[in-house]
Amino acid sequence: MTLTFEVDPVVDSALRDGVLSLWADVTNAGGSVGFVPPVTPDDIRPALLKHLVAMTEGRTRLLVGRDEDGGIASTAFFTFNTHPLMTHWVWLYTVMVDPGRQGGGYGRDLMAAVEHTARTAEGFEAIEAIRLTCRGGTGVDGFYAKCGYKEVGRVPGAIRVAPGDDRDDIIMLLPLT
């Protein structure tokens, strides 16, 4: 089975609820997407609302991967820089794949769609790189490295998952030029 990717989908209740459900599932499966389990969609709703507001303001774009039934199986949010010296690269946030589909190539498919979007979608013409951060100790930095991203920085102990459990904040970059 393959995913179908869409940039800037219509934001309706089905999209909102699908992203909230995915986000909670990913978090509760141990994914490092801004929360620590256990969470519910209601716990995540304020963070999603911030993404949606940024989308309406034109600062953020959403890429979704839909399964064969049209359900949301993956996401990635691009955020454009507002600082005039940094408009040539975008941040990538909230990169998620349905935990039940992990290990089947969907993550690689999502990252290929991310790169394709940044290279070809309208509004991305001046973008020369994609930058993301990830939580150390999860192994996800190795996944991103396999997708072509290079570690360009690390802040030791910057992420406190729990008392006594501090993780590195790993900064990774994919040049597009």
Rank of each mutant, 00 (worst) to 15 (best):
R59C: 04
S21V: 03
G103N: 08
V7R: 14
A126E: 13
M86S: 03
M55R: 11
I159Y: 04
D98A: 12
W89S: 04
L110Q: 01
R135P: 00
T27Y: 08
L63C: 09
W89T: 05
L3N: 03
Q102S: 11
L15Y: 08
E68Y: 08
Y149K: 00
T79K: 10
W89E: 00
R45D: 14
G157A: 10
T60M: 10
G65D: 04
C134L: 03
P99V: 06
G31K: 07
V114N: 01
P84Y: 09
D165T: 01
G142E: 14
A76R: 04
D42M: 14
M111P: 00
C147P: 01
R61M: 10
N81I: 00
I72W: 01
D166E: 15
G142H: 11
T82Y: 02
E68H: 15
V97P: 04
R119Y: 10
G123A: 08
L173C: 06
D69F: 11
M1E: 15
A121W: 10
D12C: 10
P156D: 09
G71Q: 09
G31F: 05
V39H: 02
T40R: 14
A118D: 03
D43P: 04
D12I: 11
P41K: 12
S13D: 15
G153L: 05
R135W: 05
E125H: 14
R167F: 07
V7L: 15
M86R: 11
F35G: 12
P84T: 03
P175D: 14
L49E: 13
W89D: 03
F77M: 09
E115T: 13
R61E: 12
D109S: 15
D42T: 15
M111C: 01
P156Q: 05
R160V: 15
N28F: 15
T133L: 01
M1T: 14
T60C: 15
T56V: 11
A145W: 08
L15A: 05
D67E: 12
P175R: 13
W23D: 02
V97E: 03
L20A: 07
G164W: 11
L3P: 02
T94E: 11
E115Y: 05
I130T: 07
F77E: 06
D168P: 11
M1Q: 15
P99M: 02
P37W: 10
P99T: 04
V95D: 00
D98V: 02
G136H: 04
L48V: 06
M111I: 07
V33E: 11
S74I: 01
Y149C: 00
A29V: 13
H83C: 00
G71K: 10
G139S: 05
N28R: 13
H116C: 11
T138R: 06
E125S: 12
A73E: 00
V11Y: 05
T40Y: 14
I171P: 00
D168W: 12
G34P: 13
T27Q: 10
V114C: 09
P156C: 01
I130M: 08
V26Q: 08
P38Q: 07
V155T: 09
L173V: 11
L22P: 03
D42P: 12
D17W: 09
L48Y: 04
D109M: 15
L15E: 05
G153N: 02
Q102D: 12
L176C: 12
I159W: 04
G137P: 03
D98W: 03
L174N: 02
S32W: 05
V140S: 06
G123V: 10
P175S: 12
V19T: 06
D67S: 09
R119H: 08
